[in-house]
């Protein structure tokens, strides 16, 4: 049975509510203001250690000043913490690997290359190969996997289980003797698109506010338009589409992890 993580809020305040044996995912893939602060991160690390569960820290893209703050944050993590970091910024990948080579780094969903627009499933203008192409990504490339592993220690890839593209649970082991990378399969929501300007702060760039009170945690907007199929959900800067519950996928090999979110309608 693959290991399951559940999203425990940006700061990990729901770690105490997790069932036994379920890992905790905290932080955010899309907004720097949804990262835990230093104290919150240390509390989350301690709570996870006390419950003997792994911790997954999701991180977004960073401007220079934000990346410096993130580096300070990660500097506090004890080396022996059972912790993975999902990286969604190439510069952050370089910085975190160079500064903290012991950190377990995995490539986040925003860098995976997968396409999640619901129109992909219903467009009559796509051929079968064209549709399938939208589910492929950087994890499909042996060259990229080798490079990222050797140069940056990347040991896993965060992906969505999409109706188009390869069956992620069947990824083969590497043929150069290295073990297969971990696949963190997320669901039941996937990020379709992301803006730098946040409607919850009147359409300003997230970089224009030094601190954010996180108003996006209080509500979401369901968006409907006939050509978009089932519709989208916007929360903060990100628009999401509903995907499959990763826990209900066919039995998958030990190299898969499930990451489940229950904070979107």
């Amino acid at each position: 049975m693959p290991l399951e993580y559940r999203y425990a809020g940006p700061d990990g305040d729901r770690i105490g509510n997790l069932p036994a044996g379920v890992g905790a995912a905290i932080g955010s893939e899309y907004c720097v203001h949804l990262l835990p602060g230093p104290a919150e991160l240390m509390e989350a690390v301690a709570a996870a250690r006390e419950r003997h569960i792994p911790l997954l820290v999701l991180t977004p893209y960073f401007r220079d000043v934000e990346l410096r703050r993130a580096v300070s944050l990660f500097r506090r993590i004890p080396r022996d913490a059972d912790l993975d970091v999902a990286v969604n910024d190439w510069g952050a990948l370089l910085a975190l690997h160079d500064l903290f080579p012991w950190l377990r780094l995995s490539l986040g969903r925003l860098l995976s290359g997968q396409k999640r627009c619901p129109r992909i499933g219903i467009s009559s203008r796509l051929t079968a190969d064209g549709r399938s192409w939208h589910g492929e990504g950087i994890f499909s490339s042996g060259r990229a996997r080798s490079y990222l592993r050797e140069m940056f220690g990347v040991s896993g890839y965060h992906v969505d289980s999409l109706p188009w593209g390869e069956t992620l649970a069947e990824c083969p082991a590497e043929d150069d003797g290295n073990s297969a990378p971990l696949h963190f399969i997320h669901g039941p929501s996937a990020i379709v698109t992301l803006s730098d300007a946040c409607p919850w702060i009147c359409g300003k760039s997230s970089a224009s506010v030094p601190v954010c009170s996180r108003p996006c945690r209080d509500g979401a907007v369901v968006l409907k338009e006939p050509s978009m199929g089932e519709g989208l959900v916007q929360r903060g800067k990100a628009r999401f589409v509903r995907t499959r519950d990763p826990r209900k996928l066919a039995p998958s090999p030990p190299s898969c992890r499930m990451v489940f979110y229950d904070d979107l309608p």
Binding site: L93, L94, L110
Partner: peptide, 12 residues
């Protein structure tokens, strides 16, 4: 590649 910072330029 969404290069938002100098480290991303270095990566690329």
């Amino acid at each position: 590649f969404s290069p938002f910072n100098g480290a991303a330029v270095a990566f690329l």
